[in-house]
Design a protein around this nucleic acid. Structure first.
Lengths: 345, 345
DNA sequence: TGTTAGCACTCCATCGAGTTGAGTGCTAAC
DNA sequence: GTTAGCACTCAACTCGATGGAGTGCTAACA
């Protein structure tokens, strides 16, 4: 048997997958024979299907049932046969015109929209601040022993931090510290802050060097706290629309995973670190790093809100999800998010 | 038939409910006859049960099945027969010692803990800021046309707000505005800010009165934005542990409700506005304002984090939830949250 | 040599009949 | 007022029969 896929085999495989994506039912040889332009009898199709099964692209749930795509089959489909559908998400455009000024709200809205449009579950991670530049820092005194540090980063991401200090601070000192911090740190990405700078600042702060240390610690910490980054999900109940995911065992597991968004961050990290051409990644079944989602497929994309502010947006659905549509939708949406930022500045 | 419940009927009803809460199965006359100290034959129990059914406290899922409590039966139980179990939530104490400084994180933790301990779904609303006093306001300039307003309220609740202004502001003016706002507004609850004050401030601001208006608008808006208050839920997948809630239709509906936390706020509002003695409210089945939860019971409690900062904490579970335990746990937890605040200040 | 028709075979899904067991309501006796 | 006894009901389960979709194989055909 030739291990190479003939043209005809590809056509048949494609037909099988397309059909299965639509119906969710195993597809038999007669269906293919009838609804393709191949003009082959079901018997011939059967032979070919037998080959395809042996090659590992399709499987039979049981003898005397039709075939369904294997993970490998889906993979081939996604890699080589997909035809993206460009879906217009007009609602998104409208929504964005409203200029949600809270990034968080915007993202939630996007997630919601995406879930509603695709009938899958959507997730979206807030853009990671640590790739981002500090716009300014503002220290204010709250009371005797506490000061409030506000860090504003490029893209108007705001972090608040309450710092407890040992010594009392008068207004003048606070002002000086403010200036000191801002002159040194403004415009820097958070990774760019190094020990040399810190010690220089400490030196300049003189007797207040302890506070500088505290403040920088707090800033660093507030950044690190962001490491377990927020991930919003939407449309979790959509999984009930797909019988293969809707049984209690699986549904419970999946829902739980969404709640423990800890796990989702793994996915996000994976997507962010990966630098492939399109920025879109597809995890089929067991390819996903999340055990609970072995019966799902996950499609993720990276969006950018300008200068290094990157987040991840993703769709989780059954393995038989409409990849064409999903990839198209994700592309559209990331593109529109990019646009949004451009218009904003 | 006497409409008054005899001592014996009460005992039987109580036994039925207790048993049903434990097993989740309809309970028959023989069970009661055996496992109570009433020493009555099953036939007698049957007669009594027949009465109880006629009175509406119990129902039969079908002829030839045992009885289960009706909403009315549960109601009677909760109102008069419950024996709170004081559960020690030691983990909570430990956790609180760590002094999570972000209120949000603390609340999420509490929700998680509560869900894990009860095996029901928990929800918790962030404390409403609008019952709260302004500690200070800090305006900083971000760039030409934008200023950042940080409002810190009693209890260290922090709101950020980016305000776009028409005119350019120099540092001096900003400083003046800062002082102006703080002298007028510090220590006030947000409802206490009235038009008189605002016009006074505008007057003092002179040519910058437009900005004062902008700022106050923004503050008011940031407060109003808080109206659709955050509600965190945890343990959603616990509903799958109760067959009466685990079927697709219902589970989907319930999960969806959690996501649209819009709905939950209704519940929260209801609890917050109600001023009954214990602060604990029990909604059984159809009593709940949320249609999707007609097969659930919801128990809510109000917690306080000092001076007017109140939020709601709640448990959602099947109607046959262990009310004794849940009410106990909620009391413990709200009490400990109160304690926490005391130790903090 | 590739394609097709035909046929036996497999296996799931569905349906109905029969069985079981828990539980009731009623009646008559205590 | 309480209890024993009995007929009755009904959901849940088991079991076998039936039907249909689909396959694999073989033999014939172009």
């Amino acid at each position: 048997m030739d291990l190479q896929l003939s043209e005809r085999k590809i056509k048949i495989l494609q037909a099988i997958i397309r059909n299965y994506l639509e119906t969710g039912e195993p597809v038999g040889s007669r269906t293919i024979s009838k609804y393709t332009d191949l003009n082959l009898s079901s018997a011939t199709i059967r032979n070919e299907m037998s080959d395809l099964e042996e090659m590992g692209y399709i499987v039979q749930p049981h003898t005397s049932a039709g075939r369904i795509p294997s993970d490998m089959g889906y993979r081939l489909y996604v890699d080589t046969m997909m035809e993206e559908k460009d879906r217009e998400l007009t609602e998104l455009k409208e929504m964005m015109l409203e200029k949600e000024d809270k990034v968080e709200h915007l993202l939630r809205q996007v997630a919601k929209l995406l879930a509603a449009n695709t009938n899958y579950v959507s997730m979206i991670s807030a853009p990671a601040i640590h790739t981002n530049k500090i716009k300014f820092i503002q220290l204010s005194r709250m009371d005797e022993r506490q000061i409030l540090a506000v860090v504003v980063a490029e893209g108007n991401v705001i972090k608040n931090n309450i710092i407890s200090v040992q010594e009392r601070l008068d207004d003048e000192t606070l002002l000086k510290l403010n200036i000191l911090l801002n002159t040194h740190l403004n415009g820097l990405a958070l990774e760019e802050i190094n020990l040399g700078m810190i010690s220089a600042m400490k030196h300049q702060a003189g007797i207040h060097s302890a506070i500088v240390a505290d403040v920088i610690d707090a800033i660093a910490q507030s950044i690190r706290a962001e490491e377990d980054l927020e991930v919003y999900t939407s449309g979790a109940n959509n999984i009930f629309k797909y019988p293969e995911l809707a049984d209690q065992q699986k549904a419970s597991e999946i829902i739980n995973t969404f709640e423990e968004n800890q796990m989702l961050t793994e996915l996000v990290q994976g997507t962010l670190s990966d630098e492939n051409s399109t920025g879109i990644q597809v995890y089929i079944g067991n390819e996903t790093p999340i055990q609970a989602m072995r019966d799902c497929s996950v499609v993720t994309a990276t969006y950018e809100l300008g200068e290094g502010m990157r987040g991840t947006i993703g769709i989780i659905g059954p393995k038989r999800m409409d990849y064409d549509k999903v990839v198209g939708a994700l592309k559209t949406i990331t593109h529109q998010l990019d646009e949004l930022y451009k218009n904003r500045t």
